[in-house]
Simulated scan of single mutants.
Amino acid sequence: MSNFNLVDKVENITKEEFKEKYLSTNTPVVFKDLAKNWKATTKWTFDFFKENYGDWEIPMYDDSYHNPGNGYMKPVSYKKFSDYLDIIETKPTSLRFHNFQIMKRAPELANDYETPTIMDGFFKFALMFFGGKGSALNLHYDIDCSHVFLTHFQTQKKVYLYHPDQSQLLYKLPFTNHSHVNVLHPDLEKYPAFKYAKGYEATIEHGETLFIPRLWWHYVYYSEGGYSLALRANNSIKTKAQGLTNLIRLFTVDNGMNYIAGKKWKEYKDNKAEQNAIKAMNEVKLEL
């Protein structure tokens, strides 16, 4: 397994201190108190969502999310929201529900959290992520080049992070923002370069917020079933433009080629990722 440093946890930090120590250095950090005044930290329980929004039909995703073919990055099924919440509250499952723009479905929930003032450039929209114990969100980075502020509720989850300069050692798949490496159980015979990658580990408890700097890789593991709210910020015109370019280029090329070539496209990406990883690994070895 790669080497992990623990992400700092802070509280009562000022906007200026955050900018100097974490934002300007592109370094992750966990805020213990960024969401301390949010109604959501006491209001958003499993029962609250079941009672008020339990009839929603929601898409389910599992470990087949990146398998090539017609199901590539598509839901495997749909469930009633209340039934899904019953599952993740009581038992392990690989089923996840992610990138949900819940405020479009229930705009009143926007009254339960506040836009942070810790930096400028926050977007108005929010995303929610739900997962059962033992489920994980693949190693990836967010291609829109935004910083992410991820606040967790009710339980606990772990996030493993890697600086963008580790991309090749992580077997970054070309024309995507993803890697197939399982951070917690890596196949080092298949991915030998991964053991040279240096990462960070963050444990987010109820009400805590993880700052994920732009373009940082992250592997999200649900050590307990639970859910999180992600707010995004980008105070740079340059990186906003870069993010838009990434979204158009990666989604268009990758989804298009998957539709046309399927498994052959996957094989090309895997082979290219392996070539780049071996080259990066050899460069690291020369520096040791």
Rank of each mutant, 00 (worst) to 15 (best):
V29N: 05
V148S: 09
V29E: 06
L169T: 04
I118H: 08
N258M: 12
R232F: 09
I87R: 08
M73D: 11
Q168P: 03
E205S: 05
R96E: 03
W56Y: 10
E224C: 07
V76L: 01
L137C: 09
F97D: 04
H180Q: 06
A193P: 05
Y191T: 01
P213S: 11
Y191M: 01
T176D: 02
V76N: 00
S2G: 04
D120G: 03
E20W: 05
M257N: 08
A230S: 15
K80D: 13
I118L: 07
Y78H: 13
H152Y: 13
I118K: 03
M257Y: 06
Y268G: 00
T90S: 15
K19S: 07
I237Y: 11
W38I: 07
R96V: 08
N3E: 12
H206E: 01
I102V: 15
C145M: 07
L244Q: 12
H180N: 09
F49K: 08
Y222E: 14
V76Y: 00
N177T: 11
Y200S: 07
K80E: 12
T45K: 10
P107R: 03
H140F: 09
Y53S: 04
S167I: 03
I143C: 07
F4D: 02
T245V: 15
R96M: 12
F123H: 10
Y160C: 04
F4T: 11
K79F: 15
G132W: 08
T239D: 05
A110S: 15
Y259M: 12
T90R: 14
V148H: 04
F97Y: 13
Y61G: 07
D165L: 09
L139M: 14
T117G: 11
V183Y: 02
T93V: 11
N246T: 09
L23H: 10
L184C: 03
D270M: 11
V181K: 03
Y221H: 12
N37H: 01
D55I: 07
A230P: 02
P186W: 01
V10E: 12
S2K: 10
V29Y: 08
H178R: 08
V7Y: 00
M281H: 01
M119T: 10
P164C: 09
L210C: 06
F130R: 06
N234Q: 14
S94T: 14
K285Q: 02
P174W: 03
K74I: 14
S179P: 02
E11F: 07
K50P: 01
I88H: 05
H140P: 06
A261H: 05
M257R: 06
Q275T: 13
H206F: 00
Q166Y: 01
L229R: 10
F97Q: 10
T27A: 08
N3A: 13
N70E: 13
H218C: 09
M119F: 00
V181M: 00
Y141T: 01
